[in-house]
Design a protein around this nucleic acid. Structure first.
Length: 575
RNA sequence: CGGGGCGUAGCGCAGCUUGGUAGCGCGCACGGUUCGGGACCGUGAGGCCGUGGGUUCGAAUCCCGCCGCCCCGACCA
């Protein structure tokens, strides 16, 4: 491709709208352009990188035994009503009516459509297992699109669905996808961590997210410094602290006028926060109240709490609700005497404490020397606190660390969540109808492009991994009109082509500095320069974008040198 | 949805306080000099000053409404 023909304008200045390094570079390098909030065009260069990524993913899905198809983005409401997600699924579904006043949506995901398809086509267990996938545009009316193509309202996703006759089959499909994901991300030059995740509203038993570690990631991931334990903070478990053994003392009331917060209380009682127990009051669906006890220096993990109690909704209670429940204003809540009016949940660490401090459910009063069992009885004891760095690992003696990550893949064991609601069944050997067991597996393809750039750039621009670079080589002819140089360039291009290496030839009538700057910004893995210095020995200057290493190569050897820099044959794949 | 910020040329911004009909840099077009890390000189094109209303002789500027965009939070496969 000649630069003079390429539909590309690079930006010298940083667009004001972009905050993250990757988003800025994608705009500056002319990979994407914005149409509206969270809605982007992919320009030829950006699209080409995305196509290379799609092809890698496609190859890995195919070799895992999956088949590609294409499902409609336009979906009738009836399917979503059948699965129960038309109203629950909520605000992010883009809905509208057709001319006949029929409800439709633009597909945010395709569990319903694929389940509908499979229930019509699959009659027998002999047609299973089945893995079907597509690479297609998804639509979600995100509350807050951000960071360019990392969270957008229209995006490209690979979604794969597995159908098995039993749970053992699902385990096989799930593990096969796990391996395929790992392989695909590696090939894309992306560092990822697979973490335990909360299945959330989509339902199902197990789920894992593939995270690309990055400071601009929206998720916090918790990783053990010793073993392989890793989890999304929303789902991270923590090994309980060892139980205290001191003898129980008599519970007493202490007057604490206007002392409401833990920090006020530590000062007032001259006790550390880890001797206190916070009681947080939540309202679940249908007026059910939940009181959650965590140590004074900890936070509640609301996601863990929600899935633990299997609650559809959960919100902090309003001050009036707290006063109705406890008889005291906010700041004096405690578990004693609350058992009948609320579900009392105690964090595992609190369960091991003796003689702690809680609110007394009376204005301006706290209890000291509270003990579980004697003074109140919890309904549930479980791990409901938010993990933080330094916490003990649930699997080994190590301790947990924290980093941010971009979620680029998510795999779920759905089980019968959709197949049951939509009656997708098949007959087994005995002629008995069996509900099909399902899994679903997503990769955010357009997000992956952004994640690759977030992980691979420097101050001067993008540093594409060879396998996903829109082109492999950026060729600069220093003196555009020079015929001797042009002849060398032509020969060089021919050797690249015959080696399966693709390139951009910067043939613009610009000064060398401009071309070098654009070469760094666009960030193809190799830059090749042919100029006055090349003529005498018929050489090409070859520079590695990542290492900065530069060498002269004889024209005859140049293609081989380039290939070596690209990492050998494995990375050379044209779109 | 709550908080904050911003909408002026393709991009980055000034002008608004104190109303008088729009400017700078980059980019773009043309000519010339240049040419190994974003050159220089000259000429030029390009603007319902987000949008609707109001105040005024007169509004980019003051007032009110709406829309859009960005950030933080809430929320979220």
């Amino acid at each position: 491709m000649r630069m003079s023909n390429l539909f590309l304008t690079t930006l010298r200045e940083i667009p004001a709208e972009a905050e993250t390094p990757g988003h800025r570079l994608m705009l500056r390098a002319g990979l994407i352009r914005k149409l509206a909030a969270g809605v982007y065009s992919f320009m030829p260069l950006g699209y080409r990188a995305m196509e290379k990524i799609s092809n890698i993913v496609r190859q890995e899905m195919n070799s895992a035994g999956a088949q590609e198809l294409l499902l409609p983005a336009l979906q009738p409401a009836e399917l979503w009503q059948e699965s129960g997600r038309w109203f629950k699924g909520g605000k992010e579904i883009i809905r509208f009516k057709d001319r006949n006043d029929r409800d439709f949506c633009l597909g945010p995901t395709h569990e319903e459509v694929i389940t509908d398809l499979v229930r019509h086509e699959v009659r027998s267990y002999r047609q299973l297992p089945l893995m079907l996938y597509q690479i297609q545009t998804k639509f979600r009316d995100e509350l807050r699109p951000r960071s360019g193509v990392i969270r957008s309202r229209e995006f490209i996703m690979k979604d794969l669905y597995s159908f098995d006759r039993d749970w053992a089959g699902l385990d096989v499909s799930y593990n096969r996808m796990y391996e395929a994901y790992d392989a695909a991300f590696k090939r894309c030059g992306l560092k990822t961590v697979a973490v335990e995740a909360d299945p959330g509203m989509i339902g199902g038993t197990d789920s894992m997210e593939f995270m690309a570690p990055s400071d601009v990631g929206e998720d916090v991931i918790i990783v053990c410094d010793t073993c392989d334990y890793a989890a999304n903070r929303e789902a991270a478990r923590i090994r309980p602290a060892t139980a205290e053994t001191e003898p129980e003392r008599e519970m007493e009331t202490v007057l604490t006028p206007d002392v409401r917060t833990i920090s006020q209380l530590t000062e007032f009682l001259e006790l550390p926060a880890d001797r206190m127990v916070k009681t947080l009051v939540y309202r679940a669906g249908e007026g059910r109240m939940v009181a959650v006890l965590v140590r004074g220096d900890r936070e509640v993990n609301e996601v863990k709490l929600t899935s633990l109690l299997n609650l559809g909704e959960l919100a902090m209670a309003e001050p009036e609700e707290i006063e109705n429940l406890t008889g005291a204003p906010v700041g004096f809540s405690g578990p004693v005497g609350l058992e009948d009016a609320a579900t009392v949940v105690v964090d595992t660490d609190v369960a091991g404490m003796r003689n702690f401090v809680t609110g007394a459910n009376a204005p301006d009063a706290h209890f000291i020397n509270v003990n579980i069992g004697r003074d109140f009885s919890p309904d549930v004891i479980d791990d409901v606190k938010l993990a933080r760095p330094g916490d003990p690992c649930p699997k080994c003696d190590g301790s947990l660390t924290e980093q941010r990550g971009i979620e680029i893949g998510h795999i779920f064991k759905l089980g019968t969540r959709y197949t049951e609601a939509m009656h997708a069944t098949c007959l087994d050997e005995n002629g008995t109808e069996q509900v099909i067991i399902m899994g679903c597996y997503g990769i955010g393809i357009s997000r992956l492009v952004a994640a690759v750039i977030e992980q691979n750039h420097d101050d001067n621009g993008i540093i594409w991994p060879a396998a996903v670079a829109p082109y492999h080589v950026y060729i600069v002819q220093i003196t555009p009109g020079d015929e001797e140089q042009a002849a060398l360039v032509q020969q060089f291009c021919a050797t690249l082509e015959s080696s399966g290496i693709d390139y951009i030839l910067d043939d613009r009538d610009e000064r060398p500095g401009v071309k070098f700057k654009d070469a760094d910004l666009i960030g193809l893995p190799v830059r090749a320069v042919i100029g006055p210095r090349s003529l005498e020995g018929r050489t090409v200057e070859i520079k590695c974008r990542r290492s900065g290493e530069e060498k002269k190569a004889a024209l005859a050897d140049a293609a081989m040198e380039v290939k070596a820099l690209l990492g050998g044959d494995a990375f050379v794949s044209t779109v």
